[in-house]
Design a protein around this nucleic acid. Sequence first.
RNA 1: GGAGGGGUAGCGAAGUGGUCAAACGCGGCAGACUGUAAAUCUGUUCCUUCGGGUUCUAUGGUUCAAAUCCAUAUCCCUCCA
Length: 375
Amino acid sequence: MRLEYKLKQKSKKNMARLGEFTYNGKVYKTPMFMPVGTNATVKTLAPEEIKEIGCGIILANTYHLWLRPGEDIVAKAGGLHKFMNYDGPILTDSGGYQVFSLARPKDITEEGVHFKNHENGDKLFLTPEKSIEIQQKLGSDIVMSFDECVKWPSTHEYMEKSVERTLNWAKRGKSVFKRDDQMLFGIVQGGEYEDLRRHCAEELTKMDFDGYSVGGTSVGEDKPTMYKMVSYATKYLPEDKLRYLMGVGDPIDLIENVMRGIDLFDCVSPTRLARHGHAYTKHGKINLKNSKYKEDFTPVEDGCDCYACKNYTKAYIRHLITADETFGARLLSIHNITFLTKLMEEIRNNIESDTLEEFRDKFIIDYYGENYEYK
RNA sequence: GGAGGGGUAGCGAAGUGGUCAAACGCGGCAGACUGUAAAUCUGUUCCUUCGGGUUCUAUGGUUCAAAUCCAUAUCCCUCCA
């Protein structure tokens, strides 16, 4: 079934918006945080746990599933949902981020991108058409255009060329996109340059995608720059379509970018930080590996009703992480995803009452302290 | 009783006259992580008032110089009786 987005309410003070979509008979609300499950699994978690936490959409990755097990096997299994036993909505990234993380500049051509398989060194070539075809076989609900995620900083000159390429790739991908039960998103690039972001957003809008992403952020830039990048894109995107900010998950960035008109976020942080022993709390991020938690028999966060906090102590989780036991990573993943999911719920409530700015100011003091500076 | 091997930092283990406060691994203590080449990576780990001080089982010796060579003691391991 195809997911249909409805814009429900807009803030009068900023660009924040409330919206919803129905999927499989269930109503999901935006803004929303989407956990990342690159290899068709949110690392260490069972689908039941993800649903229990209250997550909506989860991500999987075209590049990784293309290499292993291969999109044909997923299709034979009956599609990604059946293959991984997740009946909630799934978004697939196109491989565009792997252009940033795995390819070298000389690997990127107008036709597509050359990769070296990171597992065995095989030579690979991914094109926009191929990316969309793979995603159609995977059968995700939201398909991303293949784009060039560009490093920061980049010159206006390079970015201009790159934006044309991303637009061209978006068009080529759209031309082979056939399934009517999937949505296809275009991705706005353009770095920190307003003219390029605007041009990209307007051209994509002309092509009429089902939703739009903002890409090329969280690649090393400072926060004020990221927020500018987002504003330069959302300003020129249609209001009635979903907007997805790719790869952003720092708690304050979720709030700030909702205020700039973003509906969807994804980030590996909650699960990766969990594997490395870190936990989000209202009073900032803590590192459970620190020796001060050795005899701390209180939950990771007082008042949190996640499975980890209801049943286990910091001392125990610290022990698990220290002993390299996967259960520790699982407990912290549950906690961290719960934290961001709850944060999004609070953000939605504050959009409804149009008090998001006050909420942000209080959140910053609690999480980062009085003297926080954006950087 | 005889023959041989060995004791190096919290642990394991290199080093066999100067470039050694001593490789490397583990453990410890911290840090990073943003559309996952990430259960990974980085720093640090004798003491210090940052000038320096004290180390390689112990004591004595050789030498300009010793973890390294010699003597004795001591502890551990292997084999033979």
